[in-house]
Simulated scan of single mutants.
Amino acid sequence: MLKINCNKFLLALAKSGMTTTELKIKSGVGRNTISKVMNNEANVRPTIAGRLAKALDVDVEEIVYIKEN
């Protein structure tokens, strides 16, 4: 599971100019999941993180927390 960086996610969403409804349609990710991500309440599967990043036209690394060893 991946943790989405809420602030970076919201910044990417703002830059995209999309509404959450448009993001839902473009990404295929449910509104409930998007809401939880926006409120920093959810860890998501890598596929969901990838779909959100693709819909926002950013690299997935830009919206997830990355643990460095």
Rank of each mutant, 00 (worst) to 15 (best):
D57L: 12
A55T: 07
I63V: 10
E62M: 10
I34F: 03
E62T: 05
I25D: 12
V64R: 02
E68I: 13
A42Y: 05
T21K: 08
V37D: 00
A55M: 13
P46G: 08
L10P: 06
A12S: 14
V29K: 02
S16P: 14
L10W: 04
V29R: 03
R45Q: 15
L23R: 07
A12T: 06
N32A: 09
A12L: 09
K15N: 10
Y65K: 14
V64E: 05
L2E: 05
A42D: 03
R31G: 10
K8P: 07
G30W: 04
I4N: 04
F9M: 10
K8R: 15
V64A: 08
I4W: 01
I63T: 09
V64H: 03
A55P: 13
M38L: 15
I4E: 05
S27V: 00
C6F: 09
K67C: 07
S27T: 06
K8W: 00
M1H: 00
A42M: 02
A53W: 10
A49C: 12
V64K: 07
L56C: 05
K36Y: 04
L23C: 12
I66L: 15
I34S: 02
N7C: 04
K67H: 11
E22W: 05
S35Q: 03
V64N: 04
D57P: 11
C6G: 02
L11S: 14
P46R: 03
N32V: 11
N43C: 01
